[in-house]
């Protein structure tokens, strides 16, 4: 009896720190944000006590034009960056999976962007996008004449696209490595069989590679989508949500409302909405795209 008890107390002691942290860092704040969303809680203490305001925050949120703009921007970013980034990652992975010369060197080089913190990437791209004579505009001038330039970051139409390209550049190596792992798992004899059948390169991709990547694709689609929905740093450093709110994402709006404007109650309603949206999207993707071998 004492020995069993001793073994179990050890188990409890080993389980406790991680569970305590999860409760303190995730469960308690989660419950707090639901609670705050029904109050007029402020960040800094005020002389007037915090009041229960019912659904006011939610009513305000659904009537808030800027909130809907933030949702639109976040959706736009996600819809642009996910296919773009996954396509690039897959193409690079296929090139680096082929028996090309200097393959190791190419792999090393293509991973480098992942090692740069986003703030450094933003600094680099701020120069690339510079007006009127940054590198990208210099290239543009070759086609459009010497005085022409595009204000990539400063234009409402182009700012989000500029953030998309920068983000894809910064993080594509992660997806590329996962694709590379997936490509290495494709059985080689499938390709041999396809070749014997006279399949073209495109047919080999379409009917051998692509089906074999199904699980990898689903995994990457879900994590890249969730990553995209959380867009904050690039926007916060490069555009401050502008111009004219055209790059204000949900998280950036939440930060503005809750931290800069100190409206915790209102921002909590936004965060509850964000949590529900992200979870729903993840679950829906999961349900509609079943892994191979699942019912």
């Amino acid at each position: 009896m004492p020995t069993i008890f001793k073994g179990r107390s050890q188990e409890l002691a080993m389980l406790f720190p991680a569970m305590a942290c999860l409760v303190l860092i995730i469960v308690v704040p989660f419950c707090l944000s639901i609670g705050f969303s029904f109050t007029d809680q402020r960040l800094m203490p005020r002389p007037i006590p915090t009041r229960f305001v019912g659904l006011t925050n939610y009513e305000r949120m659904f009537a808030d034009r800027l909130f809907w703009q933030a949702i639109g921007n976040t959706v736009l970013f996600t819809v642009l960056v996910v296919p773009f980034q996954l396509m690039i990652s897959l193409c690079v992975a296929m090139a680096l999976n082929a028996a090309i010369p200097f393959r190791g060197l190419f792999r090393t080089v293509s991973i480098l962007p992942l090692l740069l913190p986003i703030t450094v990437v933003v600094a680099i791209w701020a120069v690339l996008y510079r007006i009127p004579t940054g590198p990208l505009n210099t290239i543009y001038q070759l086609f459009a004449g010497p005085e022409a330039y595009i204000d990539f970051v400063g234009g409402s139409d182009t700012a989000m696209v500029a953030i998309v390209v920068l983000s894809a550049w910064a993080t594509f190596p992660y997806q590329m490595l996962i694709y590379l792992a997936g490509l290495q798992d494709v059985p080689g004899d499938l390709y041999e069989a396809a070749e014997l059948d006279g399949a073209t390169a495109w047919q080999r991709f379409r009917f051998v590679t692509w089906p074999c990547l199904r699980n990898v694709n689903i995994f990457l689609l879900i994590i890249t989508t969730i990553q995209a929905l959380k867009l904050f740093t690039q926007v916060s450093v490069m555009t401050k949500g502008g111009p004219n709110g055209s790059t204000t994402t949900i998280i950036y709006y939440l930060f503005q409302q809750g931290f800069t404007s100190q409206k915790i109650g209102y921002a909590s309603a936004i965060s509850v909405f964000f949590f529900i949206a992200v979870t729903t999207i993840a679950v829906l993707q999961r349900v509609f795209l079943k892994n191979e071998g699942e019912q």
């Binding site: 999860l22 995730i26 308690v28 939440l254 915790i264």
Partner: peptide, 20 residues
């Protein structure tokens, strides 16, 4: 419980975490 918390986006919790 652990699997359920994986899905919680940390970004949605920063404000209550800040107050804590």
């Amino acid at each position: 419980f652990v699997v359920a918390t994986i899905a919680v986006p940390a970004e949605s919790l920063v404000l209550p975490q800040l107050i804590l």
